[in-house]
Design a protein around this nucleic acid. Sequence first.
DNA 1: GTCTATATACAGATAGAC
DNA 2: GTCTATCTGTATATAGAC
Lengths: 190, 190
Amino acid sequence: MSTPERLIESTRELLWERGYVGTSPKAIQQHAGAGQGSMYHHFAGKPDLALAAIRRTAQEMRATADGVLGGTGSAYERIEAYLLRERDVLRGCPVGRLTMDPDVVASDELRAPVTETLDWLRDRIAGIVQEGQERGEFAATLDAQAIAATVVATVQGGYVLARASASPAAFDTGVRGLLALLFAATTPAP
Amino acid sequence: MSTPERLIESTRELLWERGYVGTSPKAIQQHAGAGQGSMYHHFAGKPDLALAAIRRTAQEMRATADGVLGGTGSAYERIEAYLLRERDVLRGCPVGRLTMDPDVVASDELRAPVTETLDWLRDRIAGIVQEGQERGEFAATLDAQAIAATVVATVQGGYVLARASASPAAFDTGVRGLLALLFAATTPAP
DNA sequence: GTCTATATACAGATAGAC
DNA sequence: GTCTATCTGTATATAGAC
């Protein structure tokens, strides 16, 4: 891997683990096996490098989610597949965790990929819920956008619960509760 | 307010806003209007002060939640009251945000109040769901612990969505979706 | 209890040699 | 492109005077 590549990948790792505020240029250089001068040759500074890392992480999360949500099956099944997909639960969401980073939230540029990704995810899920409603699978009275927001929030909050208890179980339990509620909102096939 | 009090309160504010990693002793001193020597006279250092602050914040959150959850009304209504209670949504949860702080999670002492508070909250809500089931208000097939985890996760994740979009609307939308699903899981009064 | 002085290390770069 | 030197400021304290 080229040096800029290693720097971006290292930054992604460290941002995920320690956040923007907790990640120093020095730590990035050491993780990437690159020198000081090398890093500043390829990137203008910490914010520039972080932007590249955040954009890539956001892009990757989007692709992963799209892959699962675009699968086959009923609306319920596709949302279920998304909720049950394999996750590194205790590491948290590499995109969502950035919303708790004051310096990321304070910067329009750094926050933009986070905003866009979570907005996209919500809309993507809302589309599936709506599809399910058109097919008579979900009750037509539901607000697709609201259900989608609940789904995304449960995932993001599930990470919080899991990290608080230092165990992935809490994430799974929250997801199980949501799936039970969602299933109860499906209408039996005619 | 006494100097130790001002130091604790300042630390609470800064932990809420910038997290543990992003909060320096110097910033605390300035916010509290206390000198360097003064702070180190009353507290052993940053972790000691943070522990006092986190404990108090956790205690306060518990008291607030208990006040709302212990109100009158049906199980659904009490959970609804908790979900709709006034919140400083864009600031996030002062307890939950600590789970994204690497230094807090790495310390058993600092993490303990976070773990305990979220565990307590989950159990408290599970008790209410179960009560609702015993009264025939909620379907008996639901897993009370799972529903409680979903409720807490939706709130914690709602903060993430709100901060990502820099607007409290996403929090409200997620809560609305959850309430719709919960309501659909109630059985009509006989 | 509070203040000032001092100390070591790290944060986040810039400059210029190679 | 990469390296080393250098720089200013901050992080997180400790020591001792008042």
